[in-house]
Design a protein around this nucleic acid. Sequence first.
DNA 1: CCGTATTTATTCTGTATAGTTGACAATATG
DNA 2: CATATTGTCAACTATACAGAATAAATACGG
Lengths: 110, 110
Amino acid sequence: MSREALGYFELLVLLAILRLEESAYGATIGREIEDATSKEVILGSVYAALERLQEKGLVTSRLGEVTPERGGRAKRYFRLTAKGVRDVRASRDSLTTLWTGIPNLAGGRA
Amino acid sequence: MSREALGYFELLVLLAILRLEESAYGATIGREIEDATSKEVILGSVYAALERLQEKGLVTSRLGEVTPERGGRAKRYFRLTAKGVRDVRASRDSLTTLWTGIPNLAGGRA
DNA sequence: CCGTATTTATTCTGTATAGTTGACAATATG
DNA sequence: CATATTGTCAACTATACAGAATAAATACGG
């Protein structure tokens, strides 16, 4: 895994952030992935992936204001960088190129 | 990665096999992935992934006749099992669910 | 208001799985 | 034997899982 080369879970995390726009932080990202995959998501995995993605320059983060709700620590919000968007597009294009035109794969959502 | 939970490269390998139908073996699988991703593929990685996929019961392999071409060892051909097809579909559906309706992602192939 | 329980969010630690890389083995042909 | 083609191995790094620990903020009883 020398160069870049996004892992599968990392790709899910990036896509979740894109969907959530301004409200992407640990918990919401995890929930978004659970909804899409129907599998339980361990939050530690989300945070670990976010850390790596930030080091690779694919996301940035900012600390949010203290929530007015009940209690609890400040949220850390995430956004994709331009490079992050480019990498997601590249992955999506590679995958769609591969799975387009495979007859044996019919019967899903796309 | 406890249960199943396909890695990114493993998914590429499975898709390549599906596309190649009856002619899927190490070298052709590698080339198919290179064509789709525009990145160099190390054959050792392909074989390692194939090994794992077979242990997980997602592919089966059979040895082919000795090639009539130039030289070289007998090829090992791969096919997906029913479970393999199911897992690929599930991954594809999760991904398309996530990336459908993200405006910021326009301008690719799909 | 002080201390403690509670809530929400993030970080840490250890382990298992996935993926990379380059060298090496096998097998065929000229 | 030299060379081409295919496949295996072993050592290493990176990703992901799983659950415990820590942080930061609020509410509330005394």
